Lab assay of single mutants.
Amino acid sequence: RYRTTFTSYQLEELERAFQKTHYPDVFTREELAMRLDLTEARVQVWFQNRRAKWRK
């Protein structure tokens, strides 16, 4: 599977959502995914990776 490349707008929005909550529920993820034209799975994985980065 190829690596997803996020646009700067998508990253800004994902980071903004991350500032609000590190653990968005499925509705929040679905809403973000639709708004950013991504799949909910991509959003979920982004948050997993972002939390890992945050913990370091």
Rank of each mutant, 00 (worst) to 15 (best):
L36M: 05
R51D: 03
V45M: 10
E30L: 15
F18M: 01
Y9E: 12
Q44T: 15
V43F: 01
E30G: 11
R35M: 06
V43C: 03
K20D: 07
T28N: 09
F18I: 02
T5C: 11
F47A: 01
K20F: 05
S8H: 15
F18Q: 00
A33I: 05
W54M: 08
D25V: 02
Q48C: 06
E31I: 06
L32E: 00
W54A: 13
T4R: 03
V26M: 07
V43I: 11
K53Y: 11
T4N: 15
F6K: 03
V43E: 00
Q44E: 09
K20R: 09
W46Y: 08
V45Q: 12
F27H: 14
R29K: 07
T39V: 12
R29S: 08
P24L: 05
R35I: 03
E30K: 09
A33R: 10
R50V: 01
T5V: 09
Y23M: 04
T4D: 14
S8L: 06
E30D: 12
D25A: 07
R42I: 14
W54Y: 12
Q44F: 15
V26D: 10
E15C: 01
L11W: 07
Y9D: 06
A41L: 08
L32I: 10
Y23C: 07
R42W: 12
L36G: 01
L14N: 03
P24N: 02
Q48K: 15
E15T: 03
E31Y: 09
R55E: 10
W46R: 01
A41P: 13
R55L: 11
R16M: 08
R16A: 09
M34V: 11
P24V: 07
K56M: 11
D37R: 12
R1A: 15
R16Y: 15
R55C: 11
Q19C: 10
L36Q: 00
E30M: 03
E15L: 01
H22S: 11
P24E: 04
V45I: 13
T28E: 05
R29V: 14
E13D: 04
A52E: 11
E12M: 06
R51K: 03
Q48N: 02
M34F: 03
K20W: 05
F27A: 15
A33H: 01
N49C: 10
L11Q: 14
K56D: 07
R55Q: 07
R55H: 01
